[in-house]
Amino acid sequence: MGLLSKKDQKLILDPLADDNPITIQVLGICSALAITAQLKASIVMSIAVLFVMGVGNVVISAMRNIIPSKIRIIVQLVVVATLVIVVDQVLKAYAYSLSKELSVFVGLIITNCIIMGRFEAFALGNGLWRSFLDGIGNALGYGVILVIIGFFRELLGSGTLLGFKVLGDPIEKTGLYSIGYENNGFMLLSPMALIVVGLIIWVQRSRNKALIEEN
């Protein structure tokens, strides 16, 4: 981090914890919940968002002085949609099964509020380099939460991580399963994603009292 000034470092580090897009700013929840039943899907989604946000923020920041403010939403949507089409085509070409699994949620990156939110809040008012860092920082903050949720849901729900059977084989009763452990299939269902996020928020706000809301 020697290359970056104090202020630039803050841009990257803040969203990772105290200004996290998901748990504090409440942006980009939809995809965070829907695709996190497996760690692999969460990681791919994070990388996709990282790409779209980094590039998108730079493009919007470069055009910020020539976009008429009345139609800026449409301009932003077009920029994001173009980037998302690129991501979608790359996924279809190199990871077809995964792209089937993510189904519409790749497309929904377009309306992922993190992206529009950061365009509006940051890229429209700041220079190229700082916007790029802000995009990367927020995408990383988003990715961290996604990976945490994906980790717990896959580990507890199917006893695997990235497809490897880390807890032993449930059919041959090896590892943990030999002493009577059972997978909690409930973790794979949608409601548990919400509850896991709720618990993450609980942990985070217990550690940092400044984040507690009034009501």
């Binding site: 748990t23 548990m192 994603a193 509850i195 709720g198 928020i201 942990v203 706000r205």
Partner: peptide, 20 residues
């Protein structure tokens, strides 16, 4: 509601229960 859960946290958990 426990202080750290207030606002966003409890909303998530309630939504989870409603989803169930």
């Amino acid at each position: 509601v426990p202080a750290p859960l207030r606002g966003l946290g409890i909303t998530f958990i309630i939504t989870g229960l409603m989803a169930i």
